[in-house]
Design a protein around this nucleic acid. Structure first.
Lengths: 347, 347
DNA sequence: GTGAAAGCGCTAACAG
DNA sequence: CTGTTAGCGCTTTCAC
C-alpha cells in the first residue's frame, strides 16, 4: 500500500522490452531472445536468471516487432458476409480450427453483402500482412486483389467463386442441389413450382435458379415469370414474394426457397396459409425436423466448406504452387415432410 | 509473354516498401509517407508522381511496421466460447460493428469452454498487442491477465464476469430471468419443476440455478435433488437428464432449460414424450414461435451485450479510468405456449 | 555459451 | 514544401 503511494504506477501502455529484461538479468539482448523462444544454448543458470527477470517485469514478447522482422504474421483473414448468420458460424469455426492447428490466429469481419466493404476489409487485412485470406465474396470483381496475390498473399474463395480473377475456390453444388430439390417436388406431382432466391448477382443464387430452371425443363414444364422472385433475403421482401405467388389465379403448389433466410420466412408464411403448400429449402436450419410438417431441405456442409478452404490455404502457404483449383462439395436432400406434400387434388 | 519469360517473377513474399516508391518517384521517404497517409503539404504534382509509383509497384503500406512505431494496433481481440454457437453470432457481429466504427479490426477465437485454451488465446492476443480485449470467460481465474491490464490492455468481460480480478463486465440478468421463468411455471400450477443446466462452474449456469431455487423457495416448494441436473450441454447428456426426470415415480410436470443448447434438446425429448410437459428455456431460439407448442423463453439481447461491452472497451481506450463497472441487462419472458401448459389433472 | 551490431518498414522530430 | 535522421522491439548474423 505505502509502496503504491510512493512509487508511481508504471505508465499505461509502457511495457518492458527484451532490453529491459536483459538489463535486469544482467545478460545480453540475444540471450533473452533465446530464452523467450526456447532456443538451445543457454546455461540452466542463465536461463533461470532471465526467467526471473521476465516474471518480475511482466514481460511478454511483442509479436508486432517479431512479425516485422520475420515477415510472417501467423494470422489469416476471413471475410464473410455476416458473422451473425447461423450458416456461417460452423464455417467460421472450422476455419478457426484449421488455423489453430497451424498456429495462426484468425482476423475476421463481415462484408454485409456490400462489395465496397468487402474490398475495404480484404485490403485492410492485406495491409496487416495476414499470411492468407479466405473470402466469401460479396462483389463480382476481385481484380483489386491481384497485386496482393502476386505479392504472396495466399487467397482462397469459399461458398462463391472469385470474379474476374483466377483463384482457388471451394463451393457447394448449388446447381445440382437446386436441381434435385426441384426434381423432388416434381416427382411428388407438382407442376407449378415457385422459386424465391437471393440477389441474382450472387453466384450461389443464380446457380440455384439455373438448377431450378433445368429441373423444370427436364420435366418439360414451362415456368411462369410470376413464379420466380429474386431479391434480398429481407423478411418483408420474401413475405411479399411468397404471398404473391400463393394469391395468383393459378397459384403455385410448391416453393423452392433459395437459402436459409428465405426458408425461415417461407415457413412462417406457409404456416399461416389456408391450404398446404409444399416446400423445399436450400441449407439446413435448426429445429427443421420438429416443425409440422418437418422442413425438407438441401443440406450443405458449411463446416466442410470452411475446413476444405482453410486446408487449401495452408497448403498454399506451405509452398504449393499448382494452378488454382475449384472444389465442389456435394449437397444432400433431407426429406422431412414439407417437400413430400402432394399438390391439391383440384390443382 | 516474352517479357515474363525473360524477367523472373518478383519473389513471392517480397513487397515494395516506401523506400522503393520513393526511389521510383524520385522523392524522399517522408514524402511518400505523407501521400500514403493523406497528410498536408505535398504539391499536387509531387503527389501525382508518388501515386503513379505506388500504382506501378503495387505498393501497400505495411501496417505491422506502422503498429510497431505508433504503439497502437487498431485491433481488438474477442475470446468467445464457440464461433459456431448461434447465441454468439449476434454478439460477435455487434462487437465487430462497434470496432469498425472506431476503425479497428477484430481478431477472434473460440475457447471451446476450456480455461487453458481461453488463457492461451487471450495471451496470444496480448502478444499481438491488441488495444483491447473482450472475453467471454471459460475459466474462473483471470489473474493471468493482471499484468496485461496493468500494461494498458483494456479488458471487458461479457456474458460472464471475470474470476478473481476486478474488471468491467457486461452481463444478462441470469438470476432474475431464471427466477421469473420458474415463477411463470409455478403460476401456471406446476409444483414439480425440473432444472437442466450447464456446468456449475459457469457463472451464468449457477446464477440461473440460483434463480430457479429462489423462485421455488418463494413459493414454498421443496426441490427434489432428482429434479436438478447440471453438466455439459451435449445432447446425449441433456437427453438422459430430461428422460430421467420424466420417468421418475413422481415425474416433473415442467422443465426449465438453462440455455439455448439445452432447450433444443429438451424440445426434442418432449416432442416424443407421451404426455404434455411444460417448458421454459433460457435464450431465444430461431423458429421457437413455429413449433407446436411455441417455446416460451427468457430472451436475452445478445447483440446489446456485445455492443455494450465493445462501447465500454472503446470508452476505456479513449482514456476513461473510472473504477471497473458491472452492467446487467434485463431479460424478457416471451410466452409462446410451452410455458403455459398446465400440469396434468392427476398430477 | 554469449553478445554486439545491423536492419525489418514505418513514423516522429526536426532540418532545410 | 520536402528530406534526413533516429528508433519502435525484435531476429539475424557473425564475432567472441
Amino acid at each position: 500500500m505505502a509502496d503504491t503511494a510512493r512509487r508511481p504506477e508504471p505508465r499505461y501502455g509502457t511495457r518492458p522490452t527484451m532490453k529491459d529484461v536483459a538489463a535486469r538479468a544482467g545478460v545480453g539482448l540475444k540471450t533473452v531472445s533465446r530464452v523467450v523462444n526456447g532456443e538451445q544454448g543457454v546455461t540452466p543458470d542463465t536461463e533461470r536468471r532471465v526467467q526471473e527477470a521476465i516474471d518480475a517485469l511482466g514481460f511478454r514478447r511483442n509479436d508486432s516487432a517479431r512479425v516485422l522482422r520475420k515477415g510472417r504474421t501467423a494470422s489469416i483473414g476471413l471475410v464473410l458476409e455476416d458473422l451473425a448468420d447461423p450458416f456461417y458460424g460452423p464455417l467460421n469455426r472450422a476455419v478457426e480450427e484449421v488455423a489453430r492447428a497451424h498456429g495462426a490466429l484468425l482476423i475476421n469481419g463481415s462484408s454485409a453483402e456490400d462489395p465496397d466493404r468487402e474490398q475495404e476489409l480484404a485490403l485492410a487485412l492485406c495491409a496487416r500482412r495476414v499470411d492468407g485470406l479466405i473470402v466469401i465474396p460479396a462483389g463480382c470483381d476481385h481484380r483489386y486483389l491481384e497485386p496482393e496475390i502476386k505479392a504472396g498473399v495466399a487467397t482462397v474463395f469459399v461458398d462463391r467463386p472469385a470474379g474476374r480473377i483466377d483463384a482457388d475456390a471451394v463451393l457447394s453444388d448449388s446447381f445440382g442441389g437446386a436441381r434435385s430439390g426441384t426434381a423432388h417436388l416434381i416427382a411428388h406431382g407438382h407442376r407449378r413450382i415457385g422459386f424465391v432466391g437471393d440477389l441474382p448477382r450472387i453466384h450461389t443464387a443464380s446457380e440455384r435458379l439455373r438448377g431450378y430452371r433445368t429441373a423444370m425443363a427436364e420435366a418439360d414444364l414451362a415456368i411462369d415469370d410470376a413464379w420466380v422472385s429474386l431479391g434480398t433475403t429481407a423478411p418483408d421482401r420474401v413475405r411479399e414474394a411468397v404471398t404473391a405467388m400463393l394469391a395468383a389465379p393459378e397459384p403455385v403448389t410448391a416453393i423452392f426457397a433459395g437459402n436459409n433466410r428465405v426458408t425461415v420466412t417461407a415457413v412462417r408464411v406457409l404456416a399461416a396459409h389456408h391450404r398446404p403448400v409444399a416446400l423445399v429449402g436450400f441449407d439446413d436450419i435448426e429445429l427443421a425436423d420438429l416443425l409440422d410438417p418437418g422442413v425438407t431441405v438441401i443440406a450443405q456442409d458449411a463446416a466442410a466448406l470452411g475446413r476444405t478452404a482453410a486446408e487449401r490455404l495452408f497448403h498454399r502457404l506451405d509452398g504449393a504452387a499448382d494452378a488454382p483449383s475449384r472444389v465442389v462439395l456435394p449437397t444432400r436432400l433431407i426429406a422431412r415432410g414439407s417437400g413430400e406434400i402432394p399438390p391439391p387434388a383440384d390443382g
